[in-house]
Design a protein around this nucleic acid. Sequence first.
DNA 1: CGACGCATTGATTGGATTCAACTAAGGTGG
DNA 2: CCACCTTAGTTGAATCCAATCAATGCGTCG
Lengths: 243, 243
Amino acid sequence: MRHGPLIAKLATVADLRESDVEQLIRLCDDVRTVPARRDILSEGERPDHVHVIFEGWAARYKTLPNGAQQIVAFLIPGDFCDLHVAILGHMDHGIVALTSCRVAYIPSAELDALTSDHNGLTKALWWATLVDEGVLREWVVNVGRRDAYERIAHLLCEMHARMQMVGLVHEDRFALPLTQEQLADATGLTAVHVNRTLQRLRSKDLVEIASGTLTIPDVGALREAAGFTGNYLHIQRRALVPR
Amino acid sequence: MRHGPLIAKLATVADLRESDVEQLIRLCDDVRTVPARRDILSEGERPDHVHVIFEGWAARYKTLPNGAQQIVAFLIPGDFCDLHVAILGHMDHGIVALTSCRVAYIPSAELDALTSDHNGLTKALWWATLVDEGVLREWVVNVGRRDAYERIAHLLCEMHARMQMVGLVHEDRFALPLTQEQLADATGLTAVHVNRTLQRLRSKDLVEIASGTLTIPDVGALREAAGFTGNYLHIQRRALVPR
DNA sequence: CGACGCATTGATTGGATTCAACTAAGGTGG
DNA sequence: CCACCTTAGTTGAATCCAATCAATGCGTCG
């Protein structure tokens, strides 16, 4: 945790050397604060920076013609916002800060340079996007084939596992700064139904929610209820390779 | 089309040289036939080959504890099955042949070697996976926020656009070798409801389906009904760069 | 305080599922 | 060559999960 969530996350999978870590830290020296509800990136934009969340929560979202919104991913500390625009050119969705966020702005060119002399980093970044893809597949399953109860339980399990990866879970408790409206936009439900479903989860003592903090008294029980296995997150802890 | 769908697809985006094309063709010399309904890759597998569909349709799918299935992607000629397992290690989902498929088996090691001396190819492969990711985001929106009617219309629009990319659409007509059951598994609906919804689409003359062939008399009208814009497919035709 | 965002509750509606039966098409084997 | 069986598509009726519409509580903040 000494180096922040990004390195914590990448170190769990890639053979990062001390020198890689130093390079990453140097890249992330331009950290700005984005207030809640502000777009970090808007649809159609062609950013010349790559963005990494250092602190706070954000969401990828798409808006339909009728005004309905669908959140397609939650971004937590350590997550890249747009590793892809360097290649795809423009954003096909927006990213909005859900809380006040501290975001690192990395010039695309510098990242390009770093990854082209291919060290362990390229693979680590690849890995990050591939895990994102795995998460997306699971989200399709979630909205496609689980009922509201399992769906929300599953989402909470996922966020618990991901927050744990970056060291933000303490005693099965972590900050969940989402409104029920946002949970609804992520699960394809309405806020009203999210409310009723959360009540069911609470009444069964699977979750406790108080002032933006989620507590999961029995992780195993919640995972059972959700049908959650974290296999798609491809978590595998490795040691940090010395210089 | 002279070189098959994979090169056709990659050439629309990357600066492929003649030499790149030759390399790709050489890589794809081991083409095998997989019968319909057979798994090309199973969940949990750790393949030492990377697979590309040359002919036929396949589907990525996940199975839930209760037996429900969710298709999370359709694979058509030119699509990679598992560009990611080289990095993630194991398959977190299965891939099944929907029709008899001709599949190229590329040894992972050879692809690694090819991409590590980074030519235009690396970027092209990156691009392919990033588009897949964009498609997945749209699928989340599809099952999360569109009703059955728009949902199926949107899926058909997408497949039309993707089939067009690899030159498999002729006069707004293309092979759609999917059962209504499979359409249901892809859209998070039941086969019964897919049936009724297809009837509505037919009655409005938005689609015609006969013996595994889909005809879209008025592409604009169907896209309008679906709220479809292909922006997330990141299609952009470029010229082939000469050697 | 009043306004606003968010959570909560009730009543009602509706889209999609479920269960079940039935038809059509295709393949197989006696 | 037809009886038989399987698979895919179709239709109807009943049911249910979640949406919709609407109102209320409640804490916060300018």
